[in-house]
Write a protein that binds this DNA or RNA. Structure first.
Lengths: 200, 200
DNA sequence: GTCTATACCTTGATAGAC
DNA sequence: GTCTATCAAGGTATAGAC
């Protein structure tokens, strides 16, 4: 019987190590700014070894983007299960915002990397990811239109985009060490739900 | 007497041409993704000529970032003048959001470039820009605390960050050809001010 | 599945003529 | 103020041994 690994990272296969370290580096420094030599260093192997697992740097990026989308898609489905049958709009919204934020901060570095570097990746790779992103957006559109039934769809679209801006920009300033992700999610929902007006 | 230039861009000095084309390219593709050869092409000169005007690529970037901050600082001051003496919070907020959005979309490509590429520039350049950004943030903190006087400062900080996320993320999806910047600003303020609750 | 060694290209930057 | 010519470094990627 094999010994358990003290550090879970040791248990990762070479391929998984490359994916995780690359995603971390892309998130921290960007795609073009991160060389395969740097990724190989972080994954504790030689640059050439990466090419056993991935056809090119772009293919490595593609898989990271795919996993990133999978992360939020799964989070959305799980949040939906958690509020199945719930009719209160704010409760439903809160569950989904919390799910998205946990995917960003707690679960998957792939999701954080995807959202952060997306505007600056090669055109071909970005084009491939667009349909998946559209599908995720569509789920949110449906959710929000079901909650704010009195609003015109155009207004809901602005709300959705504002909400995405608020959620995703937190990657640049929120530190999970200084507050729980759930509290951050609740604060974002409170801003969107109450507005400033009611607190003047 | 010199002839007037048909295209205002023709009137730009070599130095200005470099700055504008570089900012446009950094905004569209990112800093590391844009080579000095590409910039030189766009500015209709040879790569070596750039070094007559700028010590290095990082120095060129630094000036673009500085101009970007100047753009929103000036916009903030002008918005403040426009609502001098006005006490209604929403009117004051609307003026400043519109000012920020105009700086992003209508006035200065430098501001848009600054905000977009900031997370992915070399550490040394980024560190130099932080105090200027902090000063701009501080003006918004003061503005928002003066408007939402009943809220704890922590809540105002979340609102400020949500608002910045909403405003700046519009760079990635708003097309000025499909709507005026003023309407976009009004929609963002409406989302923040009314919340969803009042429209259910 | 990982290695050594290396090819080939693009990059930021410099020297010096005009 | 812009050019031609060029360099050294670092980039992605490949060949082939182990």
């Amino acid at each position: 019987m094999a010994l358990a690994h003290a550090n879970p990272a040791d248990a990762e296969s070479g391929r998984e190590r490359i994916l995780h370290r690359a995603a971390e580096l892309f998130l921290a420094r960007g795609y073009a700014e991160t060389s395969l030599r740097t990724i190989a260093d972080a994954a504790e192997m030689r640059p050439a070894s990466i090419y056993y697992h991935f056809e090119s740097k772009d293919h490595l990026l593609t898989e990271i983007l795919d996993r990133g989308i999978d992360g939020v898609m799964t989070a959305f489905d799980e949040a939906e299960k958690r509020v199945e049958g719930v009719t209160d709009g704010r409760t439903r919204l809160n569950a989904h915002v919390a799910g998205h934020m946990h995917a960003l901060f707690a679960n998957q570095v792939f999701t954080a990397a995807h959202i952060t570097i997306f505007p600056f990746i090669p055109d071909t790779v970005r084009a491939r990811a667009v349909p998946q992103r559209d599908e995720y957006e569509a789920r949110w559109t449906e959710l929000l239109e079901g909650i704010a039934t009195q609003l015109p769809k155009q207004a809901v679209a602005y709300i959705r985009l504002s909400l995405f801006g608020a959620m995703n920009s937190s990657l640049h300033w929120f530190d999970p060490a200084n507050g729980t992700v759930d509290k951050l999610a609740a604060a974002i929902v409170a801003t969107l739900w109450n507005g400033i007006e009611s607190h003047q």
